[in-house]
């Protein structure tokens, strides 16, 4: 197995060290503006103030899919170009994506209680997000069980690609299954054009969440690079000690 080429990650670390504070600052500013716009947004005539949950639920749903997208691109980088940073990018995206998927599920369920009268409905969209969450958990389980980072990153890359092929199929089948077992009463939102007074805060919040994703992702990548460095150095130290004894 090739040693991770540390030259590139070192340059990457320098860039991250410089960019990260600015990115975090911009994220905070956009969040502040987004939340201000959310406070000013009018209530929905059907759902009342519960529409406020949408401003976090929808961006989280978007990020749950983008997270897997990032992992898929990173998987291609790992398998095709064998780029060491791609491994790191894929691994760092998994917990962040899983966390946003979790947020999407919880807020969806809290939105469902007042709107649908129950915390959970086997609605097509919620269910496919749930399956996506399970896929994320499988990915995290894969990383947890493997000790060798090189080995686990290849396996994770294959799983990310298999998942990327499967997610549309799962979404299609869950929607098909859902229309087969049509739930009694679901208040369908959307369909009609969204009013700009709601749309703009939503877009700002989506931007803020996306920036947050990349901030966390970059920071997690930096941690992962450092972790691999520590691992390499510890192994070399152990080797050195073993060499001194014999």
């Amino acid at each position: 197995m090739a040693v991770i080429d540390l030259a590139n990650p070192t340059r990457f670390l320098n860039v991250v060290d410089r960019v990260l504070p600015w990115l975090a600052g911009v994220t905070a500013l956009v969040f502040a503006y987004g939340l201000y716009r959310v406070l000013g947004a009018p209530d929905d005539y059907q759902q009342g103030a519960t529409v406020k949950i949408m401003f976090i639920h929808v961006p989280a749903a978007w990020l749950s899919m983008m997270g897997w997208g990032v992992m898929t691109v990173a998987a291609l980088g790992t398998l095709v170009w064998r780029h060491p940073l791609a491994d790191v990018a894929g691994k760092a995206a998994a917990p962040v994506g899983a966390a946003f998927t979790f947020i999407c599920l919880i807020t969806g369920s809290l939105w469902g209680r007042p709107t649908w009268g129950t915390y959970w409905v086997w609605d097509a969209r919620l269910t496919s997000v749930l399956v996506l969450f399970l896929l994320y958990l499988g990915m995290l389980a894969l990383y947890w069980t493997a000790e060798d980072p090189g080995r686990s990153s290849r396996a994770a890359a294959i799983l990310a690609l298999v998942g990327a092929v499967n997610i549309p199929i799962i979404k299609f089948s869950v929607e098909w299954w859902n229309t087969l077992h049509q739930p009694a009463s679901i208040l369908r939102t959307g369909g009609s054009a969204i009013d700009p007074s709601i749309l703009w805060p939503l877009l700002v919040m989506a931007l803020a969440f996306t920036l947050l994703f990349f901030t966390l992702h970059l920071a997690a990548m930096r941690n992962e690079i450092l972790r691999r460095r520590v691992r390499t150095m510890q192994m070399m130290q152990a080797q050195h000690l073993a060499g001194a004894e014999t």
């Binding site: 399956v131 399970l134 958990l137 499988g138 389980a141 298999v162 998942g163 299609f172 089948s173 869950v174």
Partner: peptide, 10 residues
Amino acid sequence: AVLVLPLTIP
């Protein structure tokens, strides 16, 4: 099982 079962849902 954890990896494969979600993929078999369809």
